[in-house]
């Protein structure tokens, strides 16, 4: 008897849902190729992080609570974002700490939630992908994935399995890009300075493509590169791993660019 496929509930994330569906479809493809049965609960919206990080825990709980039941029946919950996966895994238990009735269910959700790429490598033991890509890319380590979930080597491992793809590292891959959710609109000048430092670093690598695992950071960096007139293309790492770069133009890039 072959063991049944793990059932994965995809947590799409609000940004991917609204701005970049291709990342969601890339995630589905990667998960299915890794042998998962993927489902998308249609009532999901957001993980509540914008409210949580603004100190509005009541609103955060209101948005977060439905996810606990919605994803209860899956073996795993996977998000193409270190930030949102980190919110569920690390911060849901804090957010519901005062509610003992919820504690066990929240912990169960936390335990089975993963960021996409690390889920592929660490849980599904994927060590290569059949994608094609020609050229030099650089990779930004988004903060939450890196520090809360220890996502560092996993995306590099899979990217390195792609023939023709070469990674040219940033001089400071682990320095924040200045997105920070609401931070980037509350303190635009500091954010602008930080993302400016980041795009300089990106340009100096000589890579044609910038990849990362979080859409918020990618939109920030892509927006800045576009403003500077750079022709570096920006994509979510899942698009490259799933060989779906033909499905959409780069982030902030034109059709056919």
């Amino acid at each position: 008897m072959t063991p049944s496929k793990p059932r994965v509930g995809l947590f799409v994330t609000c940004l991917v849902d609204m701005f970049r569906p291709t990342v969601g479809f890339s995630a589905v493809k990667l998960l299915e190729e890794a042998g998962c049965d993927v489902d998308v609960p249609m009532d999901q919206t957001c993980c509540g992080q914008p409210a949580f990080n603004s100190g509005d825990n009541a609103s955060a709980r209101k948005v977060a609570a439905p996810l606990i039941d919605m994803f209860a029946d899956y073996d795993y919950v996977v998000a193409p974002s270190g930030s949102c996966a980190g919110m569920i895994k690390k911060h849901f238990p804090e957010l519901f700490a005062d509610d003992p009735a919820m504690a066990a269910r929240v912990q169960a959700l936390s335990d089975k939630t993963h960021e996409l790429v690390s889920f592929l490598t660490d849980i599904m033991k994927v060590d290569s992908v059949p994608a094609e890509f020609d050229g030099k890319v650089t990779y930004h380590d988004s903060c939450s994935g890196l520090r809360e979930l220890k996502v560092k080597q996993q995306p590099r491992k899979l990217l390195n399995s792609i023939k023709g793809l070469e990674i040219s590292e940033l001089s400071e891959p682990e320095t924040c890009c200045g997105f920070g959710g609401t931070f980037c609109v509350k303190y635009p000048e500091i954010s602008g300075k930080m993302v400016g430092d980041k795009t300089r670093d990106i340009t100096e690598t000589g890579a044609k493509t910038l990849l990362a695992g979080d859409l918020g950071c990618l939109m920030n960096m892509a927006g800045k590169l576009a403003r500077e007139g750079s022709n570096v293309e920006v994509r979510h790492v899942a698009e490259v791993l799933a060989d779906m770069t033909m499905a959409a133009p780069p982030i902030a890039g034109k059709e056919g660019e």
Binding site: D17, F25, V185, S191, G192, N220, A222, G223, K224, R227
Partner: peptide, 19 residues
């Protein structure tokens, strides 16, 4: 969204949502 667009362009969505 001046806080965003004073500093950088705003990347457009693809058009339809994932859902």
């Amino acid at each position: 969204a001046g806080g965003w667009t004073d500093m950088r362009d705003f990347p457009a969505p693809e058009g339809k949502t994932f859902k």
